[in-house]
């Protein structure tokens, strides 16, 4: 297929995955506003911002007032910043807009059902603002938007031809997911460490304040955790589940396996060097999680390495299939 079309589908998926992910984080966070202690709410915001690699829209961290009075006012500003802020390229609205814009440009490459589904989701969000969703129940907005994206993914699954376009969509989706999982887990481990009442080993600290339950729920893994382990959440086990469990749909291991499979299914790259590099790196990434994770002494370092590989993989895929030098490329 046309390289630019492949690229458009790849980014469409990435942006939608990103939007869905942020929806899940925010859905849980605004739920927490109702009954969680202020310290946990602040922990939640820090984790989200750390995972977005973004600073809250205050002068400095002091803006995040830890008293109860300010928690809700802060939450309104922060949720607005992450959800609708036009100048925030990663806000839910902007991710959805970017995903939908890629779909609009590539709608001849996707099914009509996919386009309609996504366009309706976008039209619903387009004119909203934080004020509109805050009045009643913001979590229902996040839940609805996430469901719209889930529906889109399901409609794609049911209607899209499994050609190259499909593969590039899958690659985009799972590269994004792998990056999000590693980033949020790293943010969780790091934010946990910064909490004043935990020791340096924290991050893997137990207790209701450390947010592991919320994190499991972010990937719809809480029920799975209870089935697999127990009702009491232990951070090391939660981490194992999210990273290495091949049976959990949202786990890193499973995302990477899908990624390797889809990459292998694409035909040979017009840039043979980059094509081979893609294959090697994807294999190494999979092996890292499958074989090294179980007894690795420094798990944050391993996650950071996986994350770096994911970023690099994006560049390699681009070089192999999209931005290759046409002067060297074969004529098919």
């Amino acid at each position: 297929m046309l390289s630019r079309s492949a690229q458009g589908l790849y980014w469409m998926s990435r942006y939608l995955e990103r939007a869905a992910h942020l929806c899940r984080l925010l859905e849980l966070q605004v739920e927490a506003l109702v009954d969680r202690p202020a310290s946990m709410i602040h922990f939640g915001w820090r984790r989200i911002y750390a995972s977005q690699d973004r600073r809250p829209p205050f002068e400095d961290d002091a803006g995040l007032d830890e008293s109860d009075d300010f928690t809700l006012a802060d939450a309104y500003t922060l949720a607005g910043d992450l959800t609708f802020e036009r100048s925030n390229p990663e806000s839910i609205r902007n991710c959805l807009a970017a995903g939908r814009e890629n779909a609009r440009q590539m709608r001849h490459c996707i099914s009509a059902e996919m386009w309609t589904c996504l366009n309706l989701a976008w039209l619903r969000v387009r004119d909203l603002d934080i004020e509109d969703i805050w009045k009643v129940s913001p979590e229902s907005f996040y839940a609805r938007t996430r469901r719209d994206i889930d529906t889109f993914v399901g409609v794609a699954e049911a209607t899209m031809y499994r050609g190259e376009g499909w593969r590039f969509m899958q690659i985009g989706r799972f590269i994004e997911r792998a990056q999000r999982v590693t980033t949020v887990l790293l943010a969780q481990l790091a934010t946990g460490k910064r909490m004043p009442d935990t020791d340096p080993n924290a991050g893997l600290e137990t207790g209701p304040e450390t947010g592991w339950v919320a994190l499991l729920r972010t990937w719809q893994a809480f029920d799975a955790y209870r089935q697999r382990y127990s009702v009491e959440v232990r951070p090391d086990q939660a981490l194992d589940l999210l990273v290495a469990d091949p049976l959990l749909p949202g786990s890193l291991a499973r995302s990477l396996e899908t990624l390797v499979r889809e990459l292998a299914a694409i035909g040979p790259s017009p840039n043979a060097g980059a094509g081979a590099a893609v294959e090697r790196l994807a294999g190494r990434l999979c092996a890292l999680i499958r074989y090294e994770w179980p007894d690795h002494p420094d798990r944050p370092a391993l996650l950071a390495e996986a994350r770096a590989h994911c970023l690099h993989l994006h560049d390699l895929v681009s070089a192999a299939y999209i931005d290759y030098d046409p002067g060297e490329a074969p004529v098919r």
Partner: peptide, 26 residues
């Protein structure tokens, strides 16, 4: 048909090609 922009096309040896994921296509 493929929906192309100018940047997707190039001329080599007097023929027009488009950039695809598999290489150039006449």
């Amino acid at each position: 048909a493929a929906l192309v922009e100018g940047r997707d096309l190039l001329v080599r040896d007097g023929f027009v090609h488009m950039r695809t994921t598999e290489g150039l296509r006449r």
